[in-house]
């Protein structure tokens, strides 16, 4: 006998992501999921973003890592509430982990939650967390061919940050080719060249994010 199921494989995660999204929307909190490989500068970009936005928005960070509290401590040392999720080996965050992290945050006193996903350009792709926007960070030393190796994650990005842009002169990184391959996957995503350590380009990226936060506020 054939049993017709016709359901998403990740129905459970999708249901929990929907719950997170409703909870965030009810509290008026915008959530952005930051995706990148290890070492691309996720935490540094997040800290640079916080410095520019902390006077405008009340911010908290959810740090996803396989192990350690290093990143959460780094964020907390800047006076920003941070919750560390240790996935205990899992290569990506899932909606239930983010839901538990949201339990630990004072949502009613927040405007923006930045979720730093586990460093990985493959596994997080299929797992909705309930975020409002997904941003992929690629750093110049990783090479301009990465969109061709990890197409799925670039295809779903709402924006792409090209970090360590100040190192462009010393790496064989073809920016034109990078932009073309991202556009062929995702013509709607803007690309922001940034040097998170030096601050160059951070303003443009941050203004885009603030624009998204404001747009979400006017529609709710």
């Amino acid at each position: 006998m054939e049993i017709d199921l016709s359901r998403p494989i990740l129905a459970r995660n999708e249901g929990l992501a929907r719950k997170n999204r409703e909870r965030l929307a009810a509290a008026g909190v915008f959530a952005v999921d930051i995706l990148a490989s290890p070492g691309a500068g996720k935490t540094t970009t997040i800290l640079a973003t916080i410095e520019r936005l902390r006077d405008r928005y009340r911010i908290a960070v959810i740090e996803g890592d396989i192990a350690s509290r290093v990143d959460a401590e780094k964020v907390a040392s800047h006076g920003i509430p941070a919750v560390q999720i240790n996935t205990g080996g899992a290569c990506h965050l899932e909606a239930d982990m983010v839901g538990r992290a949201l339990d630990a945050l004072p949502l009613d006193g927040l405007d923006l939650v930045i979720i730093e996903n586990v460093g990985n350009l493959v596994c997080p792709t299929e797992f909705d967390l309930g975020q409002d926007a997904r941003v992929v960070i690629l750093s110049v030393p990783e090479g301009h061919d990465k969109p061709l190796k990890y197409p799925a994650i670039f295809a779903l990005a709402d924006a792409v940050v090209l970090n360590k842009y100040d190192t462009l002169p010393v790496f064989d990184f073809d920016e034109g080719e990078f932009r073309e391959s991202v556009a062929r996957l995702n013509g709607a995503a803007p690309i922001f060249p940034v040097s998170a350590t030096k601050g160059d380009g951070v303003a443009d990226w941050v203004e885009w994010l603030a624009g998204r936060i404001e747009a979400a506020r006017t529609t709710t």
């Binding site: 006998m1 998403p8 494989i9």
Partner: peptide
Amino acid sequence: LRIDDVDVD
């Protein structure tokens, strides 16, 4: 990413 159907006895 979908489960379509299952054949069982």
